[in-house]
Computed example of a mutant assay.
Amino acid sequence: MTPILQARGIVKRYGHVTAIDGADFDLEAGEVLAVVGDNGAGKSSLINVLSGAVLPDAGEVLLAGSPVHFKSPHDARLAGIETVYQDLAVAPAMDIASNLYLGREIRRPGWRGKVLRQLDIRAMRQRAQKQLDELGITTLQSITQSVENLSGGQRQSVAVARAAAFGSKVVIMDEPTAALGVRESAQVLELIGTIRDRGIPVVLISHNMPHVFQIADRIHIHRLGKRAAVVSPREHTMNDVVAIMTGATELAA
């Protein structure tokens, strides 16, 4: 089957520094693909290209086998690719429902919505609650809670729920368990598995090897600006992955 999201020969330079040097990428349907690599390996730049945040200097990105040319994250979102960034990009003073529909607010029907631009708060809260229920998120007391009153793990759940609600093709997560405790990290990993089980493939960027081996179906190892290998956590150990990351071992990409 054709991979859902692909990259071929991606190159990105920042002045005299080559961040991505002919990188390839393949995300299969219904999988969690972890992307790992040392700092400076170029994995963040690659993900920024796939999510529309960075324009490549060369190469192409394909979505379901068709070339796409994202000029901004908005273009990627319109194509069904949602990204959960490490800083979450939530509005602390707004409630959970408003954050789920941030930038996609539902207007009231009729002239109130078209002319006065009034928001349909009730509809957003009902749909937001349904989305949380479908994902099995039970740690939030009320859909009307302000995000600033939530814990780090709860905020991450809101960001993940927003991505799952609108990411019809792909969900990309950048270090989703960073700075979380053991219990909250487990909840986020469970959410990632739920999204995969709903048929939406997930790209997981993480430095946490135990988490990678717990949830990933395949591991994309990035080194020196390109894909060094793709391995299975069922057939390789953490030591194998680290050896490839550092260049101590080489495998065919």
Rank of each mutant, 00 (worst) to 15 (best):
Q131V: 11
I10R: 05
P201Q: 09
L140C: 02
Q156N: 05
P210A: 03
P73A: 12
V158R: 09
H236N: 12
Q129Y: 01
T144K: 15
I221A: 00
M209L: 15
G40D: 04
G103F: 07
V84Q: 04
G199R: 02
L33R: 15
L62G: 06
M245D: 12
E28C: 14
R77C: 06
V212N: 06
A243P: 12
L180I: 02
I81H: 03
I172W: 08
I96T: 14
L140P: 00
E184L: 00
A186G: 11
D197T: 06
L88K: 02
I20T: 11
H222N: 01
E134D: 13
S157G: 13
V54M: 10
I10M: 06
T237N: 11
D120K: 07
A123S: 13
A228D: 08
W111P: 03
P233H: 03
A97R: 14
A7R: 09
A179D: 07
K169G: 03
G113L: 05
T138D: 07
A161T: 08
L50S: 10
A123G: 04
H211S: 13
S72K: 06
R122E: 15
I20V: 15
K226H: 15
I106Y: 04
P210E: 03
N239P: 01
V182S: 06
R107T: 14
D57K: 05
E175K: 08
